[in-house]
């Protein structure tokens, strides 16, 4: 895929809505398309978080493996969302597994390149953090709501 096409693909994704064109060009230069089949592992807990994904189509389960219960899905990531933010935070390793539960198409973005660019350009860093922080906070709030076990009633 040429740079212009990748640029156009990224531009239509909600995560990049309104991002300055020069940053879109930069991100497009670090991006590639990827496809995962149902049940295919996208990343594994403990592995280096060398890439992050914007979801074009499909559904991915974020899972943690427990010896007694097997893989436990703690969240699903759907079309239009972003998959993975461990690449932003040292030690840049995944905290969970990610498994496609439907055929899934993503744009994979080289995290190393983006980290380098962010270190050299604080405006880019601000632009991306401004987009990632609400996602992180949203997932923290969602996790808290899940912990509340709102629908449980002692019977």
């Amino acid at each position: 895929m040429n740079a212009a096409s990748m640029n156009a693909l990224l531009a239509e994704h909600p995560f990049f809505d309104g991002i300055p064109p020069q940053y879109l060009d930069l991100i497009a230069s670090a991006a590639s398309e990827a496809r995962y089949e149902r049940r295919e592992l996208i990343f594994h807990e403990g592995d280096e978080a060398s890439v992050f994904h914007v979801m074009r189509r499909g559904k991915v389960a974020i899972e943690i493996f427990t010896p007694d219960r097997g893989p436990v899905a703690i969240e699903t990531i759907n079309t239009g969302e972003v998959l993975g933010w461990s690449w932003l935070i040292e030690p840049h390793r995944w905290h969970f597994d990610a498994q496609a539960i439907e055929p899934t198409e993503v744009i994979a973005i080289d995290a190393g390149k983006i980290r380098e660019s962010m270190a050299a350009d604080s405006a880019l860093s601000n632009e991306l953090l401004r987009r990632f922080v609400p996602i992180i906070v949203g997932r923290l709030q969602a996790t808290r709501m899940q912990l509340l076990d709102l629908y449980h009633v002692d019977t």
């Binding site: 389960a61 899905a73 969240e75 699903t76 239009g80 969302e81 539960i101 709501m145 899940q146 629908y151």
Partner: peptide, 23 residues
């Protein structure tokens, strides 16, 4: 449809219901 907690065969959404609202 989403569930707060999932183990095993469930292949649907996991997470809080409010996550659907933005999209």
């Amino acid at each position: 449809v989403t569930v707060d907690s999932s183990v095993g065969r469930w292949r649907g959404n996991v997470g809080v219901v409010t996550k659907f609202i933005p999209r």
